[in-house]
Nucleic acid binder design. Structure first.
Length: 369
DNA sequence: TCCTCTAACACTTTTGAATCGC
DNA sequence: AGCGATTCAAAAGTGTTAGAGG
């Protein structure tokens, strides 16, 4: 594993630059194992989802900086559909197979250490190893529910809050990484992904190293991925420190997708807004390219809005929340004038009356409660 | 026929309790 | 008595496969 030496870094352009209500204005988030993610992304990351829940591999691991040491934070992750399509694996590539299924209940995984002071989060990287994905829409274990053959990306939320119950009042920031996009599957489709997983995932050693029944069986039956002594996949040449440094950090707060696309070529591909035909294959992350991570605004998650907008509409934002942040330092940043996406109004779920309701909200599931 | 999903399999890793020594 | 290191068994996790089901 090369987690420590590979970091995808993300900075946050805070708005406004001053104001006590935005104390975490310099929050930065790094994807710890970004090299591994990129290796998978270059092939077309697939994540197994099962009825009882399956961990992600690679798993989400990030490090934070810029937090206030004595302020409490809650760190959360949810999964956002990349687009409105479902896919199928055909002739060694992904093809669009129609419109996406209606979105399952949206759940958020809360990091088990939450809430914790900034000093705690700054000490070491955060691992979301225990986050599990399921295709069971009736799941009661709090796993994140996804549709098979659909594409998603994880979204990280850093919320300044003293408890899970005050999260809804805390200012928060949202981050995502382009290389973490994946296709949810119930069985691996791309043999290259299988090979990568076997090479990197310690739990798959039994399949990597020879001598086991499974391997002999796989090999005897000509499984394309069942090679017990699978060769180590050479590290992509683009993983040099120099190329990593080229990954300019960029976050755009309060930009519409159109505005984002005008900021640079990489924004046309992230957040995922492009035509599905552009994404049929794995999207190699060209390191020479100014590929970057940006803050993925919660309300700007357009692919999800068709599903969520109705829900948000049920919980109108208090009028006072829409005041400029400078005047109301404690107001939610997404409700500030800086947030210019009126066509996709984001309403903080003030009106959620219980955790069951919250669990259906992207930021308020009971996953880890 | 094709595609997707599930359960079982054999193996490794992780976890936590028990034990030991200082 | 308290603490840390070590050991060991159980639990949890892995990808592959055959077969079921739509």
């Amino acid at each position: 594993m090369h987690a420590a030496d590979s970091v995808s870094n993300m900075s946050v352009r805070r708005t406004p630059p001053t104001g006590e209500g935005f104390q975490h204005s310099s929050i930065r988030i790094n994807l710890e194992n970004s090299d591994l993610w990129k290796s998978f992304h270059n092939v077309g990351t697939e994540m197994i989802i099962t009825k009882h829940g399956r961990r992600m591999f690679p798993h989400c691991s990030v490090s934070l900086s810029g937090l206030q040491p004595f302020a409490n934070y809650v760190i959360m992750v949810d999964m956002i559909p990349v687009d409105g399509y479902k896919y199928k694996w055909k002739k060694e590539q992904w093809e669009v197979a129609g419109k996406a299924e209606p979105q399952p209940p949206c759940r958020t995984y809360v990091h088990p250490d939450s809430p914790a002071p900034g000093s705690h989060w700054l000490k070491q990287s955060l691992s979301f190893l225990k986050l599990k994905l399921t295709n069971n829409t009736l799941d009661q274990h709090g796993h994140i529910i996804l549709h098979s053959m659909h594409r998603y990306y994880p979204r990280f939320h850093v919320v300044q809050a003293d408890s899970l119950y005050t999260v809804r009042w805390g200012p928060f920031q949202t981050f995502s990484f382009p290389e973490t996009t994946f296709t949810a599957v119930t069985a691996y489709q791309n043999p290259k992904i299988t090979k990568l997983k076997i090479d990197h995932n310690p739990f798959a050693k039994g399949f990597r190293e020879g001598g086991t029944h499974s391997h002999k069986r796989c090999r005897a039956q000509g499984s394309p991925s069942g090679s017990p002594s699978a060769k180590k996949v050479p590290k992509p040449s683009h993983e040099s420190p120099q190329s990593l440094q080229k990954m300019r950090l960029h976050t755009e707060k309060g930009l519409t997708s159109t505005e984002q696309s005008q900021k640079g070529p990489h924004f046309s591909a992230w957040p995922p807004e492009q035509d599905a035909s552009d994404r049929l294959h794995a999207e190699p992350l060209d390191m020479e390219y100014d590929y970057s991570c940006e803050e993925q605004m919660v309300p700007a998650s357009l692919p999800y809005n068709s599903y969520r907008s109705l829900e948000y509409g049920r919980y109108p934002f208090p009028t006072s929340e829409a005041e400029p942040a400078q005047e109301q330092p404690t107001v939610h940043p997404l409700a500030t004038a800086e947030y210019t996406a009126p066509q996709h109004p984001y309403h903080h779920p003030y009106a959620y009356s219980n955790t069951a309701d919250w669990s259906q909200h992207p930021l308020f599931s009971y996953t880890c409660w």
